[in-house]
């Protein structure tokens, strides 16, 4: 494979030609396995952001945003942006007492009107809890706005 006339301009056609080994017949291979598939980039900043490109028949770009929310409890908000947007919120709380108890709540959300409503409600609950106003209730299957209850 030979770059026609050694021309380096954009859109140059490629030809077959006798081997002369000059620069315009030299090619480099950039391996996708090293540079693209499974590529993981950590983006510097106050939040931990990881961009991953996942191999497969369809190209999937997944962006993970991890944010540690400062406060008396350790709260990690993790947002995974992929084919579906998934929000995972992890709340770790040390429960005072003679034994060391760690209460951990993990909630996953997928984008939909229902889950977005749940996410807003849980967010409000967590914020209230962080302000010391109330204890975070366990997430139940009961959803606000259903069955005539608001």
């Amino acid at each position: 494979m030979d770059l026609a006339g050694g021309n380096l301009e954009n859109g140059t056609e490629i030809f077959g030609y006798e081997t002369h080994r000059d620069l315009n017949q030299q090619w480099e291979f950039i391996g996708v396995t090293e540079h693209m598939l499974g590529r993981q980039i950590e983006i510097p900043g106050p939040e931990r952001v990881i961009e991953k490109i996942i191999p497969g028949p369809e190209r999937v770009v997944e962006k993970v945003v991890e944010k540690v929310i400062p406060g008396p409890e350790r709260v990690i908000e993790k947002i995974v942006l992929g084919p579906e947007r998934v929000v995972e919120r992890v709340v770790e709380r040390m429960v005072p007492g003679p034994e060391r108890v760690v209460e951990k709540i993990v909630v996953n959300f997928h984008d939909s009107p229902e889950t977005l409503r749940e996410m807003r409600e849980l967010r409000a609950q967590i914020l209230r809890a962080l302000e010391g106003q109330e204890i975070i209730p366990k997430v139940s299957g009961e959803r606000l706005g259903e069955g005539g209850h608001v």
Partner: peptide
Amino acid sequence: FGIYFIRSAPSGTVINVRGAGRILVGS
């Protein structure tokens, strides 16, 4: 076996295909 970009050594640009027919370098 593998998947690769093919880069022209002197130009630093890669080969690309635009449908059947021409293969160009320069992207």
